[in-house]
């Protein structure tokens, strides 16, 4: 339909609930692992090439028309910890609500009917991109951007970082973000013939471990 749809989708103001999540940043700040601009950049780079790459692959494959329910299972197998599966499905449910209102489509209806508790967020993102007339690469780009945009914004709030510095971090990651989106889209293309194991499955032990620690906190600023 329109390139502008990608801007909507990647905009933090799109009402999909992402602002309530820090992508592991709150736990990283609390433990002191992220404390300045340099450690913020290292965190974002690590997340981009692991969780971001996986999300981008799933989103691209879904936008390509691959069976969304099979991809939802593929997301489960790539998410070993329940806290992150839970968050991903909750974000998926919220995105689904916004997407159905914005770009009504039978694909979105189909996925919502089969996953009433929420499908994994990157899968919903892929179906949404398709419904909005976007390409698999667009979906991958949005997923990759989201994987670092959320944590960077959260770091500004958690560390009182200068927002210009945080934006600078994202700008320095721009080329790598493009590479991740390309790699993910390429893998999604291969998944058509090689099966779902062709999709990226990159994992980050600290994101897994600290997500469960964070989920057990009684007081927190961010939901994840």
């Amino acid at each position: 339909m329109s390139r502008t749809a990608l801007l909507f989708l990647a905009d933090g103001r799109f009402p999909a609930g992402g602002h309530a999540h820090s992508g592991g940043m709150e736990a990283a700040v609390a433990s002191g692992r992220v404390h300045d601009t340099a450690s913020l950049e290292a965190f974002c780079r690590g997340r981009l090439h692991t969780a971001g790459l996986v999300a981008a692959g799933l989103a691209a494959a879904t936008a390509d028309g691959y069976d969304a329910l099979a991809l939802d299972e593929a997301a489960d197998t790539r998410t070993p910890v329940p806290a992150l599966r839970h968050i991903s499905r909750r974000l998926g449910r919220q995105l689904m609500r916004a997407a159905r209102a914005t770009w009504p489509s039978t694909d979105l209806d189909h996925l919502a009917r089969h996953r009433p508790q929420g499908a994994h967020q990157p899968v919903v993102l892929g179906v949404t991109a398709r419904a909005a007339g976007l390409t698999p690469l667009d979906a991958a780009q949005a997923a990759a951007y989201e994987s670092v945009g959320g944590p960077a914004t959260a770091a500004v709030r958690l560390l009182s970082l200068d927002p210009f510095d945080a934006t600078g971090v994202l700008a320095r990651l721009a080329d790598e973000l493009d590479t991740v989106a390309d790699t993910a889209t390429d893998a999604a293309g291969r998944a058509m013939t090689e099966g779902l194991t062709a999709l990226p499955a990159a994992s980050a032990p600290l994101l897994d471990i600290t997500s469960e620690q964070h989920a057990a906190w009684t007081v927190r600023l961010f939901a994840s």
């Binding site: 990283a28 450690s39 290292a42 690590g46 600290l206």
Partner: peptide, 12 residues
Amino acid sequence: PAPAWDGPAVLG
């Protein structure tokens, strides 16, 4: 050349 493997999101 794994990116940020020793960064705060992966192994620290």
